[in-house]
């Protein structure tokens, strides 16, 4: 049984995956051997119509999206789904001639599995595009964090804090929504932990910059230590955001492969 890494994908694919598994088991155990398969022309026609709509909508998306990876990854999934749909049509034609046909049964299993696989590919492609949107926001924050090094006055610090705040809020909201969407408990926890650390470190960083600015303007020494302190907090925050980016790209399969 495949394991789906988001709740949306799971809710869409789990019912069909379960039914395919049951039918495959029934066939493997010979439970349906020697039994006629009824005329499937009507339900197969419904699948064919749904596939043709899906591919039409999908192709329009490929044409309009600016996401180059989505442009690349979607067409093979359309082909997979279309070929599988053709197999189901062939199977229903074979069954009309012979309701006991063994090759037709194999075509039904292959076609159903192919559609599950193709639709799974499509949903994953979309999910990866969503993840890339979150990663772009995280990278924006990573980039802006480096500006901390050039903050030398209190005025700069106010601007810096003002600019960093909305991005942080956006990132935090996106990570919160994403962790709720994940089915893998460990990945959810890793995102929550890293995001909490980043949020806790934000006032620490601002305070470290403030101490650096004050120390530098007072010319009383201690600038190097203040700088080291600021760098330490900045590096810790960057490491946590990089960890968030890494975890966002994990799927359950990665974890299984790793295990």
């Amino acid at each position: 049984m495949p394991v789906f890494h988001t709740k949306t994908i799971e809710s869409i694919l789990e019912p069909v995956a379960q039914q395919i598994s049951h039918l495959v088991i029934m066939h493997e155990e010979g439970e349906v051997d020697g039994k006629a398969i009824p005329d499937l022309t009507v339900p197969v026609a419904a699948v064919q119509a749904a596939v043709s709509n899906l591919v039409r909508v999908g192709k329009e998306t490929v044409q309009t999206t600016e996401d180059q990876l989505m442009k690349r990854d979607m067409p093979p999934a359309f082909i997979k789904v279309e070929n599988s749909s053709s197999k189901l049509v062939q199977a229903s034609q074979m069954l009309k001639a012979d309701p006991y046909s063994v090759p037709a049964r194999d075509y039904l299993i292959d076609g159903s599995r192919g559609i599950l696989s193709g639709t799974s590919d499509l949903l994953l492609t979309f999910d990866e595009a969503e993840v890339r949107k979150i990663i772009r926001v995280c990278k924006g924050i990573l980039e802006y964090l480096t500006v901390a090094e050039v903050v030398e006055t209190m005025e700069d610090l106010i601007t810096y804090t003002k600019n960093l705040g909305p991005g942080m809020t956006k990132m935090s909201k996106m990570i919160e929504e994403r962790q709720q969407e994940l089915t893998h408990q460990e990945h959810r926890q890793m995102l929550v932990n890293s995001m909490n650390t980043v949020k806790e470190l934000l006032p620490v960083l601002i305070s470290a910059i403030k101490i650096f600015v004050t120390t530098k303007s007072s010319r009383g020494g201690g600038t190097e230590e203040a700088e080291r302190n600021r760098r330490f907090t900045f590096e810790k925050m960057s490491a946590e955001i990089n960890e968030i980016i890494r975890v966002l790209q994990l799927t359950t399969w990665d974890e299984d492969a790793w295990a």
Partner: peptide, 28 residues
């Protein structure tokens, strides 16, 4: 649990429609 081919094909058609809805929603 007994599953028939008709049931599976109906589920497949519904699944494909749901995937299409996902594409339409996320695209918008």
């Amino acid at each position: 649990l007994r599953v028939s081919w008709e049931q599976l094909l109906t589920t497949i058609a519904r699944t494909i429609n749901e995937v299409e809805n996902q594409i339409l929603t996320r695209d918008a």
